[in-house]
């Protein structure tokens, strides 16, 4: 267990204040992240308003099975993340390490499933510029816009998830070394906030990308 003095930075009065400052800092970062994704959501809204039929037609071609399974995988990872923070708070190091490892593995599973989904999209000629048949669609312009937004939004989300997985590995390694205790676990709490935020973004991507039209 880390000694109190090791974990407390000199510019904080006590660990409590440090914990609160770290949490607040992460929330401010997440607010800017919301603005970042907000730009994509706004672009999506504008073009969905402009090309409603094309968005609906393209959306029903995406693989809902992969999308649904991946949602369950990510929600499960959020549960294990919440349990990891709980384990850290009550000082259970064995649970903490297992939960952090499990969270990272579930994140990796999401990426693998997403990879299979992208491959399926490619095989189904749904990649504008790479594998796309213009004559297949009555009005291809809006379809291409939807698909590009699909790759951009899921791609940026996947990038965030990769960062999250690296974060989980670092947290798990530090937890193994006994860096965290029930007094000092702010990094686990803050890492959890980031992980849940990435999950929340996916929760909105599910209806926006897979549920535009009726299947």
């Amino acid at each position: 267990m880390a000694a109190k003095s090791d974990s407390l930075a000199p510019h904080f009065a006590d660990l409590e204040q440090q914990h609160e400052a770290a949490t607040l800092g992460m929330w401010i970062f997440l607010a800017t992240e919301l603005m970042f994704f907000g730009g994509l959501f706004t672009a999506y809204t504008v073009y969905r308003h402009r090309y409603p039929e094309e968005f609906a037609a393209a959306s029903t071609r995406l693989n809902l099975v992969f999308g649904g399974v991946n949602t369950v995988v990510l929600l499960t990872s959020s549960l294990t993340m919440a349990l990891a923070v709980y384990a850290a708070r009550v000082g259970r190091r064995d649970w903490l390490i297992s939960c952090l490892g499990l969270t990272g593995l579930l994140g990796a599973a999401f990426l693998v499933i997403k990879g299979f989904e992208y491959h399926g999209d490619y095989a189904d000629n749904l990649v504008p510029g790479l594998a796309f048949v213009e004559s297949e669609w009555p009005k291809p312009a809006g379809v291409k816009l939807f698909l590009l937004l699909y790759y951009l939004m899921t791609g940026v989300h996947a990038l965030h998830l990769i960062i999250g997985i690296v974060l989980m590995s670092v947290l798990a390694a530090l937890a193994r070394r006994g860096r965290y205790s029930s007094e000092y676990y702010a990094p686990v709490e803050v890492g959890g906030l980031y992980w849940h935020f990435v999950d929340v973004i996916w929760i909105f991507l599910l209806p926006l990308l897979y549920m535009v039209g009726v299947r």
Partner: peptide, 13 residues
């Protein structure tokens, strides 16, 4: 902070 994030997203949209 959480609500202001939503508020600014609302302004953007």
């Amino acid at each position: 902070i959480a609500l202001s994030g939503l508020f600014w997203l609302g302004i953007l949209l």
